[in-house]
Amino acid sequence: MTEPLLSARALRKSYPGARGPLDILLGVNLTLAPGEFVAVLGASGSGKSTLLSLLAGLDRPTAGEILLDGERLDDRPERDLARIRREKIGFVFQAFHLVPSLNVIENVALPLAFRAGAMDEGPARALLDALGLSERIGHFPDQLSGGEKQRVALARALVNDPKIVFADEPTGNLDAANGRRGLDLLEAHTRARGRALVLVTHDTDIADRADRRVLLKDGVLSPL
């Protein structure tokens, strides 16, 4: 039996509130095999983004344990988490979050640059070619269409050859056609290469494409 790529056990997350702690996650368990595509569904405000941030090492759980590719995330110093993120994780956001002062190729090459300390545009260029953006590598984000921004964001998520990609509503801001195309590309470049994909969505059509669907409700995760 293969070791899970991602394993989260008894994850709890609370935030301080005016009248006591606000419990968002109340003991979430999740495992992910290499190359597996999991869709996380849930209503707005159910804690999907919070769960994503914990699994990606962007935040720390109040309690529980997270293992990614054999490394604990919940008790690591920030320096190690940064290393893990640039070596093993890719992100795609609904808002894309491209750096406005960097051009397309620089945005894509960033994760590699943080790993190597220098801008090496070769892998980024290849990826952008594969995604049909070779004509846009010198453009800036405000010069791109929504669909192009999504492809740039996807390229950035893949350039460091991650083991897992986290996508938070990646097609939420696109029209149906572009959204479908974007999802096709996302699937093609993750599952086809043996990368795991955790996709947060409230769209059941998108969720149907996953290997497994889970529902986050009342702070706990249950299979669908």
Binding site: A56, L58, E78, R79, A82, R83, R85, R86, E87, F91, H97, V99, P100, S101, L110, P111, F114, R115, R156, N160
Partner: peptide, 19 residues
């Protein structure tokens, strides 16, 4: 606000705080 976004993005993509 803009620096906040950039700092978060860079750290999300693997940059350390000192960088």
């Amino acid at each position: 606000p803009e620096r906040r976004r950039e700092a978060v993005l860079y750290r999300t993509l693997g940059a350390t705080g000192p960088r």
